[in-house]
Design a protein around this nucleic acid. Structure first.
Lengths: 156, 156
DNA sequence: TATTGTTATACTCTATAACTATA
DNA sequence: TATAGTTATAGAGTATAACAATA
């Protein structure tokens, strides 16, 4: 009754896709009670780490297209988790910051997310977990060097 | 000019998402010249490995919903890469098999996919690559144990 | 002329409900 | 009644072009 996908299991990418699917599921379940999704959580984290961040820079960091980020930032602002203030020096741009409510929600979600991460990597030692992350980063960089930085990709 | 996502980098899932994004891009670029995508390639591989496979079993193996698989199998059949024959013992079901053209295309794509995998895991030794895959499988199993086997998940 | 944020839009992926034909 | 495959559909996610305000 085992899955008959032995050939595909030889490829790192196939195993990454399957592992990421279950991680994503667990992330969404974890964040659901806070009214967050993976991407809104990520945005909160990056805004918190870079106070006064511009939308276009946030889009760069998270590798999200600018038009798609607008909706996301709208959501966070309507939920009063972030503030969006005009930059005094460049009035085209907005400066993003967490509100107090945003900071409080972030801290609560952070606890849950750390538990989530432990669940997902259970069975791996701390050292193995670090090894995994460093190998994933190598792969990401290999991909970027191939020209996948942010360019267009065929979907058909 | 480095990305300011240090907090997120602590999570295995974030690194998995980013690494998988570049892998998926490279897979699609690689398969594009054969008229395939990641999922059609996967289907070819699994059908090849399980001759006479039924659609619902293929859906199970690839963790795809049955309705979504129909379109995919339609495509492969119209491209004459697979055959779809009624099961003599259960006339509700279809038996899927690769055609000769499907087998030939699979073999050509396989060469390209092995090169792709080498590109993505370049910088990792063979042993490290094996370690990576086994850690990813552990995570996948951890997720399945959490109840992510195929159940519904919140997306909001 | 270029950039920030925006709108509109389209295409893929994924998920569910309900149908048909067979069992 | 249950199962295999199907249809229709709806929601995320993701990508591009074109626009207004500002530089």
């Amino acid at each position: 009754m085992a899955d008959k996908d032995t050939n595909l299991r030889q490829f790192a990418g196939y195993n990454m896709k399957r592992a990421f699917n279950v991680v994503q599921h667990d992330v969404n379940t974890t964040l659901n009670e806070f009214g967050l999704r993976m991407v809104t959580w990520s945005a909160l984290s990056v805004i918190r780490e870079n106070s006064g961040l511009r939308q276009s820079r946030l889009a760069d960091i998270l590798s999200i297209e600018r038009p798609n980020l607008v909706v996301l930032v709208d959501q966070l602002e309507r939920s009063e988790l972030i503030s969006r203030d005009r930059d005094a020096e460049d009035r085209r741009a907005y400066c993003l910051n967490l509100t107090d409510a945003g900071e409080a929600l972030y801290q609560k979600a952070l606890v849950a997310m750390r538990e989530h991460d432990k669940r997902m990597t259970s069975g791996l030692s701390d050292e193995e977990r670090e090894t995994l992350i460093s190998m994933l980063r190598k792969i990401e960089i290999n991909g970027d060097l191939e020209g996948n930085a942010n360019g267009s990709l065929p979907t058909s």
